[in-house]
Amino acid sequence: MAAAAAAGAGPEMVRGQVFDVGPRYTNLSYIGEGAYGMVCSAYDNVNKVRVAIKKISPFEHQTYCQRTLREIKILLRFRHENIIGINDIIRAPTIEQMKDVYIVQDLMETDLYKLLKTQHLSNDHICYFLYQILRGLKYIHSANVLHRDLKPSNLLLNTTCDLKICDFGLARVADPDHDHTGFLTEYVATRWYRAPEIMLNSKGYTKSIDIWSVGCILAEMLSNRPIFPGKHYLDQLNHILGILGSPSQEDLNCIINLKARNYLLSLPHKNKVPWNRLFPNADSKALDLLDKMLTFNPHKRIEVEQALAHPYLEQYYDPSDEPIAEAPFKFDMELDDLPKEKLKELIFEETARFQPGYRS
């Protein structure tokens, strides 16, 4: 834990890192770190609560700039109880001085990944967590956004079992017609939660990839272990087919990539493993919904509104309290091709509203 900075004593240090967030945020305490930044909790002297502050230093890398800009653009436009918001952003007053960006968010005690390492969940908890994931996802999908990296560590939890989806750095506007060349190379989302079509096709992607990830998360809540822990690309596919069985001819016809289709045709026939054999203690309604989410063919996979209306979630289902976005989200430009200098300018502009004396 960093010592509390005395008023006016300059930035606090946390594990050798400068955290320049005073005077409003003090009493910093280390939480963890990701690929390009550290997260601390801090005391907000204005709202009198502890908050989470993520320090991001992305400006050396085009990919990190892209992810940072995506996350900020999306989260500043989203407003939903099951999606983490941005409360404040701290950065230098000029673009030349801006080396880091500090993002202030609600402090959540833990995440689903940490929880599943230590606790076996009751059916009631599984049901409530799944409902909140789908409630947040309904809003995301209504904005025409794909999260693309749903996994237990991106689901934040607090002691009252509130759940918030975080990390929109890989999110995209849904565009089933656009052929994202190089899709697989830039697709760094965790393999275990990846839909089979991501490994088999490169053309376009749809909201059904997020539903697949939610199915993987439900299976993990039922058993405290990942359902498809593939060691590499082909191993991942083999794990999936080992449980779902061989795809039907109709399902194979959806695979545009001939090499991928021929690979699947070359494999020995596998039978589907019954879900109640894998999860003998699970609620039968939970397994019915799991089956509809972990469907090989993305066109037959359940959609988020149908999933919310499934009998497993009937005690929570309330369409009048499951809000959607006001308007579909649009990125003005494809960020993939922009140089990091341009992305830095866009991050600077996007964060201006939090600067003292800002006038829109």
Rank of each mutant, 00 (worst) to 15 (best):
E197R: 01
L335H: 12
E250I: 14
N144T: 02
S223F: 09
Y131H: 12
E314V: 03
Y187F: 00
P274D: 09
V188M: 03
G34T: 06
E60F: 15
C40K: 13
H310S: 08
V304P: 12
G182V: 00
E71T: 12
P280L: 05
D162N: 01
V273Q: 14
K270R: 03
Y36C: 04
F279R: 05
D235F: 03
K330V: 11
Y358P: 11
L294E: 04
F183L: 01
T159N: 02
I83R: 09
D235T: 06
E250R: 10
H80R: 12
F331W: 15
G37L: 06
K151E: 02
V21G: 09
L346H: 09
L146P: 05
Y317F: 00
S41Y: 00
L335G: 05
D167M: 07
G32H: 05
K259L: 03
R148L: 00
I240L: 02
N158L: 03
D100E: 02
D175P: 11
R70V: 05
I89E: 09
A143H: 12
G10R: 01
V188Y: 11
C254G: 11
R359Y: 14
A327W: 12
Q306L: 01
T206V: 02
K344A: 10
N47I: 01
R24G: 10
D321H: 14
H141G: 09
S320W: 12
D88S: 13
I140D: 05
D44F: 08
N253E: 04
K342F: 15
V49S: 12
E341L: 14
S360W: 09
R277I: 00
A171D: 03
N281M: 11
C65E: 11
K203S: 05
T190A: 02
L170S: 10
F296I: 00
I31V: 15
K99G: 04
Y139G: 08
L28N: 14
H120V: 11
L289E: 05
E350Q: 13
G215E: 00
L278Y: 11
A35G: 05
S29M: 12
Q66W: 03
E305V: 01
M13P: 02
A286H: 10
F331P: 15
P247S: 05
L146K: 08
I72H: 10
I140H: 05
D179C: 10
F348V: 08
R353L: 08
D44W: 14
L157Q: 01
V39M: 02
Q306G: 14
S246Q: 12
N238S: 05
N123S: 06
R261I: 06
F183C: 06
L267R: 13
I217M: 09
S202R: 01
P11C: 03
D318Q: 13
G22L: 12
F19R: 03
I84M: 12
N224V: 07
H299D: 08
G169Q: 05
L252K: 08
L234H: 07
E341P: 10
F19D: 04
F78H: 06
L218Q: 01
E12Y: 09
E186M: 15
L157E: 02
E326L: 13
L234A: 08
L258I: 11
A35C: 13
P23A: 12
I126Y: 08
T190D: 03
A3L: 08
K231M: 01
R70G: 07
Y358Q: 06
P268T: 02
L156Q: 00
Q97R: 07
L134D: 03
E350F: 15
D20Y: 00
D288A: 07
Y43R: 11
K48Q: 06
I83W: 10
I72G: 10
H269G: 09
L134N: 04
A260L: 11
E314P: 15
V273R: 14
P93G: 13
M108P: 03
K231R: 09
F348E: 06
L264F: 11
N144P: 09
L137H: 01
P93L: 07
D332K: 11
H125M: 02
Q17H: 01
M221G: 06
A42H: 08
Y187D: 02
M293N: 06
A219N: 03
D210Y: 00
D318G: 11
H232L: 00
G136F: 07
W192F: 02
L116A: 07
G230L: 09
A3R: 03
K342G: 12
L155Q: 00
H141A: 11
K117W: 10
Q97Y: 11
K300Y: 10
I72V: 10
E334V: 01
T160W: 08
I140N: 02
R15Q: 05
I83Q: 12
Y64A: 05
E81V: 04
I31Q: 14
P229S: 01
A143T: 06
R70K: 04
R301H: 02
K164A: 09
D251R: 03
V101Y: 03
Y113D: 12
R135W: 14
A309P: 09
S57M: 07
P319L: 06
L308Y: 12
D288G: 07
C161P: 14
H299T: 01
R77I: 13
Q236A: 06
V304F: 03
Q66L: 00
L335K: 13
T185E: 02
K55I: 01
L107Y: 06
L75W: 11
A4N: 15
F228V: 05
D100N: 02
K272P: 13
T118C: 10
I211E: 02
D210R: 02
L184W: 03
R91I: 14
P274V: 13
T63K: 04
Q315N: 10
I84S: 14
M221R: 02
P152Q: 02
I90K: 15
Q249P: 08
D177Y: 01
V214Q: 01
D288V: 01
I217A: 07
R77F: 11
N271P: 14
D167S: 06
Y317K: 15
I211V: 05
L121H: 09
I140E: 04
I95M: 11
D149C: 03
K117V: 09
E71L: 06
C216V: 07
Q315A: 11
L76K: 12
H141S: 10
E326H: 15
E96I: 13
Y128F: 00
K207V: 05
V46F: 06
D291S: 14
L258A: 10
P152H: 00
E350W: 15
P229V: 04
H141M: 09
A4T: 05
G230W: 06
T118K: 04
Y193I: 02
W212C: 00
V104W: 04
L116N: 10
V273A: 08
A5S: 03
L222I: 13
A286V: 12
A9G: 06
S29A: 12
I72A: 13
N45H: 12
V21P: 12
R301D: 04
F354M: 03
V18H: 13
H141R: 08
V21K: 10
L121F: 08
S223K: 05
V104C: 14
K330I: 11
E350H: 15
C216N: 04
A307T: 05
D291N: 03
I103R: 03
R50P: 10
R148Y: 02
F296H: 05
A352T: 04
H80N: 06
L130K: 06
V46P: 13
A92H: 15
Y43Q: 14
K114V: 05
V39C: 12
L294V: 07
H147R: 01
I240Y: 08
G230E: 13
Y43D: 11
N224K: 02
A195G: 07
L116D: 10
G85L: 14
Q119F: 09
T110G: 11
Q315W: 15
F59W: 07
L278V: 12
I140K: 02
S266Q: 14
R353D: 08
I256L: 06
L343C: 13
P11D: 08
T110I: 06
R70H: 02
L107E: 10
E322R: 14
Y139V: 07
E303A: 11
D321K: 14
E334F: 15
A35Q: 05
H147N: 01
F228S: 02
L346M: 01
G34L: 05
R191H: 04
R191N: 04
D20W: 15
E109N: 13
D179T: 05
F354N: 08
D106S: 13
W212R: 00
Y36L: 05
A35L: 03
I256N: 02
V304T: 13
L237W: 11
I84L: 07
S202V: 06
R91K: 14
G357C: 00
D167C: 07
I103K: 03
H310P: 04
I198N: 00
H232M: 08
R135D: 13
K207E: 08
A9D: 08
L252E: 10
F279M: 08
A143P: 06
T68M: 09
N276C: 12
S208T: 01
P226Y: 05
